[in-house]
Each structure stands twice: as structure tokens, then as C-alpha cells.
Design a protein around this nucleic acid. Sequence first.
DNA 1: ACTTGGCACTCGGACGAGATGAGTGCCAAA
DNA 2: TTTGGCACTCATCTCGTCCGAGTGCCAAGT
Lengths: 334, 334
Amino acid sequence: MLDDRKLEVLRAIVEDFVSTNEPVGSKSLAARHSLGVSPATVRNDMAALEDEGYITHPHTSAGRIPTSKGYRLFVDRLSTVKPLSSAERRAIQSFLEGAVDLDDVVHRSVRLLSQLTQQVAVVQYPSLSRSEVRHLEIVHLAPNRLLLVLITDSGRVEQRVLEMPAVVSDEDVRQLREVFGPRLHGARLIDAAKALEDLPDAAPAALRPVLTSVLSVVLSTLVEHPEERIAIGGTANLTRHALDFPQTLRPVLEALEEQVVLLKLIGEANDPTTVHVQIGEENSVEGLRSTSVVTVGYGQGGLGVLGPTRMDYAGNISSVRAVARYVGDLLAGS
Amino acid sequence: MLDDRKLEVLRAIVEDFVSTNEPVGSKSLAARHSLGVSPATVRNDMAALEDEGYITHPHTSAGRIPTSKGYRLFVDRLSTVKPLSSAERRAIQSFLEGAVDLDDVVHRSVRLLSQLTQQVAVVQYPSLSRSEVRHLEIVHLAPNRLLLVLITDSGRVEQRVLEMPAVVSDEDVRQLREVFGPRLHGARLIDAAKALEDLPDAAPAALRPVLTSVLSVVLSTLVEHPEERIAIGGTANLTRHALDFPQTLRPVLEALEEQVVLLKLIGEANDPTTVHVQIGEENSVEGLRSTSVVTVGYGQGGLGVLGPTRMDYAGNISSVRAVARYVGDLLAGS
DNA sequence: ACTTGGCACTCGGACGAGATGAGTGCCAAA
DNA sequence: TTTGGCACTCATCTCGTCCGAGTGCCAAGT
């Protein structure tokens, strides 16, 4: 059905369309790529490709543009990974290594990704549940008010203020530290529930009321509903491709403001080895139907870029993968 | 030069143009507003207003639109404050009071402001330097590594990891806590330098090397270069006014990604009593020349909205002021 | 001294008719 | 199966025309 030459034609169409943003015709295509066949042959192949749904016509007398299905085939079978130059690799590394804390790492990554790809970049903060506890500090703010400060190995710091039902003594706090500390230290938050489940029994009776109260907050806010954070950047790049969004910039910007939506996008990719690509209508989020998303996990979170379906998939995939690798190393090693 | 009727005409022009986004002509203006004079008279007044630079012609046979100077006059002398309905006030209050922590307060404020005004909203986190220290925690992460956690009265939590030149003992850390704690507690960060300046002399000699090292980090990162944070939202509203930005959405989005630029915008307003309005070219930031900015301080920071010069100044001013008041109360009382 | 109605004038925008040309589909020949 | 030829389509561009909102100015009215 689809012989090698037809695939080659599809590749040429995608590449030309991505770089010129204009429907590509048989003649100019035969001229630009040395396919060794005449425009007429290309026309026949195009007709076949169109029958199969890989390309379409905007209108009768215009060239062809790839459909989502066409891009999909291109990404899966036709695009060759575009390795970054060693200069680029070094630039990425040195830029990221200049970061002073977690916020900085994330912001730099977003910036870097959006500049490398000329698209909108999205980076998830290391997920709490997949991080290990490095330290849990309990601070006695007021007679009946405690502050929990949780520090993870990836550098995230979370705090919660607890209003206690009764007055808590300094001694209570000291004991709380002793009870919680050893059990949580080094544990992954996702395993924390298990590590803490026998706590009420093991603790001195006098401490129990306070303990259960603290425990319930810890479990509910940190374990069951851990707060996920997302950084985003390069939205100005959307205007670069304004022509690709026929008056539909609005829903895209709206979607980008919804943390939930972004998490859904990134969340689907948490495996550092495989890059996920969602093209056009494949995207489950209404309003992002005209965009493509390239994501990958980096260990304790995910990151990616978002742009028009007409994007440089090969380049973006390798950029995303490269940045993810460095970010992963950086956060694991810190 | 500008009698009352001319001012009235200007007000009418601004109001009509803001609501219709179309150049307003003498005839329709005389019809819509009961000015009690004929279109011809209005024309004369318009000519006068144009001579003074308050309005212009897009082209010869079109109606008039206000210039920045015109908006400025309107804002300063002609617009009457539009008080919010008590329903709106209650809605604001209850929405903000649902916030659970500082991040939540800020995010809710941004959301609220952008929805109230249908513009881009910008909210600065409470500035560190103007906040009081509620607690400083020093955590011993590793033999030569300390973590400083600073909690302010407005709920901000900042942390810094310190790599110490030499190994630090637990006893050192305990002493550090004792030395720093009392001096900083309750002090505004901007006054911290003074509160800490005699520390090296007062401390035991053995502690000095560690102390000076910690002190220098505290002073440089928290006092001299306190990190300012900004939240932003409602960028999708920019597309609502796409017609007002003749292909210049790009520079606006770019400006919004620059923290420094935003801080500059908001930073100019830190007085909670007066609302600052910057109109069009008055704006010092290149790329925001086609926008207006309405800002006000709320105590330890500032917030505001940004939109096309053609905006509902009266409404936005009161929204911004109202939200600032509630945010200010909320953060002061927590 | 203003205000008003009248009137000629301007000019952007809308509309329609060609002209252009890239690109297609199909067919017959190689 | 490939290729050249050819008629056909249709978006886009270019003019020329027309329309009308809106202006500026002037002379008459209050």
C-alpha cells in the first residue's frame, strides 16, 4: 500500500511544510528534494497518501498539508533523531549547573527549553510523592500552633501550619520530632503512609491526641493530596506561530493557565526513557486540539514543550530529552 | 481653554470608545449622550480638544479616539470611582478567605483580579524585606551543610542551603540558633542588617568562623538581594482585546515573562492609599507602550492589572483597590 | 460671542470584475 | 508504472467604482 517512495514523499511534505508553513505542491516538492521522479509521479503518490488520510487539501487548487495521522506516521517511523551538537550539550549543562536552588533549576529549565525549541515550555516540580524525605522539621510557633517543614532530596521545601485543638508543650514537640524523624527520614513520601501506620500504638499514651492530629494532617496534605507545581515559559513563542492558530490562541492560553490540565499533559509521561508525543486531536484536552505536546519524565517529575502541530518534532524531541536528562541528574545528585 | 462642556465631550468620547472600540463621531456622540447641543457644536469642541492633543483622528473621515493624554485627563479629573456592589465585596472576601496558605492567597488573588477586570492580573508576593521574621530555623543537614529556613509573618518561607568551609558540630548549630533567633525574631528584614551587625563581637570566639560564614549568606541573600516573586494570570484575556494590539501581542507577552519588568511595574506602587495608573507611552517599559497598568500596594507588596489603553479605568481602579485591601488585611492578620 | 444648519469634500472600506498562477486530476503514450 | 500534456479549479491580487460616515468651514441665527 505504502511503498518506500510514498513514505519518502510524505517525509518531504512534512519537512517542507514545517519549514515553510505553506501547502506544498507536487512541482516544488519534486524540485526541492531530489526524488528522481517527475512531478506527475509525485502527484500520483500524493493522491494515494490522501486516500489513506495522511495529507489533505486546504482547497482544490492548493498544495497538500499533513494531517495529524500524517505527523504521527512521520514521528513514529520517518523522523531520525537529531543529535544535539556537543556545543549545545555543553551550553545546556553549564546553564543548568549555574542554578542555586530548586526554584532556580526549574526556572532555568523552562527558559532553556523554550529557547531551544522556540515553543512553550512546561516543567513540573519534582513530585513530592516520588521524592525522599531528607528532613522533617517541627517548629513551635505558638502554644497551639505548629509549623511542619518538609525538605526532600530533590530540594523541595513544603510547609504547613497546624492549628492544634489544645495547647502543646515544648516537650510534646520534642517527642514528636523524635517519633517522626527516624521513621520518615529517607522514606519516599509515597511509602510514608505505611511507615507511619503503627505510630499511634508505638508512641507514649500522653502524646497520642497531639500525635494523631499531626498525623492526620501529614497524611492528608502531604501523602494523599501532595501539591504539584508547574512552571511555564515561552508563551510569547505562541505568537511566533500565530498563523498556525487561526484565532484560536485564546483556548491555548486558557489551557496553559490550568494547572490541572498541564499536570494531565505531563503526568502521562513519567518514564525517563521514552518521549511521549501527542499530536493534534490525539490530545485529550479540549482547546489544545490544534497543538502538539512533546513530554518526557526526568525521574521525579516531567517536562515538555507545546506548540503547533506544525513543529520540528525531531529537534524538539531531542531537546526535551536532553534537558530532562540533565535535570534528572542534577536533582538526583544534589 | 477647556470649559466644562469640552471636558464633558472628552468624557463622552472616552466612554463611548472604551465600550465600542470604534472611533466616535460628532453625530452619534450627540445622539447617545444628551449634551443639549448640536453635532456641529460638538465638532467645534472636538477640534479644540484635538488641538490640545487630547484626541486624534485615525484618518480624515473617521471619528475621534482619545490619546494617552486624553485618557490621563479622564483618569485624573473626569472618572468617578465606581464603587463595587456589596455582593461583589462579599464575593471577593469569601473567595480570598478560603485560602489555606500564602501561595493560595496569591493565586486566588490573581485569579480574582483577572476575572473581575477581564485583564491580565499581576500580584507580587509579600516582599521579604518589608516582612517581619517570625521564625528562623537552622537545620543540620550534613556535617558541613546547613539549611536555613526563614518564615515571615506574611507566611513566606524561604530556604537556603549553606555549604560550610569546615565541619560544623551539633553544638555549633545549637549555639547559632540561640544567637540568631532572639535577634531576628520580630525584626523586619530590612532592619536585620543593623540587628546583626554586632553579632561577631558578641558571640563566643569558637563560634566565629562558622558564624561569619552564615552571617554573610544571610545578609547577602536575604537582606541585600531578597528574592521577589510574582504571580501572573489571565493572559488569555489579552486575546480578548486582540484588536487593540495590532500584531503587538508578542512584546507584551515577552514583557510579562520578565520578572524584572513586572517588579518594576508594581514596585512603583507600594503605597496602599493611592492607586497608580500608567497609560500607554507613560510606561517606561518598551513593549508595553500600547498598554496601561493600574497598580496599588497592599502593605508588603503590590498588585495590579495590565490591559490595553482602552480599558475601563474606573472599574479597574476600584477592583484593584478592593482586592488590595482584602489581601492586605488577610496577610496582616494571619 | 456662541451656536447652529447647510454643504462641499475627504477617504477608508466594501463590492465586483478580471487577471494571475499554482496546483490538481485525468488520460494517453512511453 | 512512469511521464508529459492539458483542461480545469479556485484562492489571491489588483483595479475601479461606489458609498457614507464624518469632517471643516461658512454664513445665518440667537
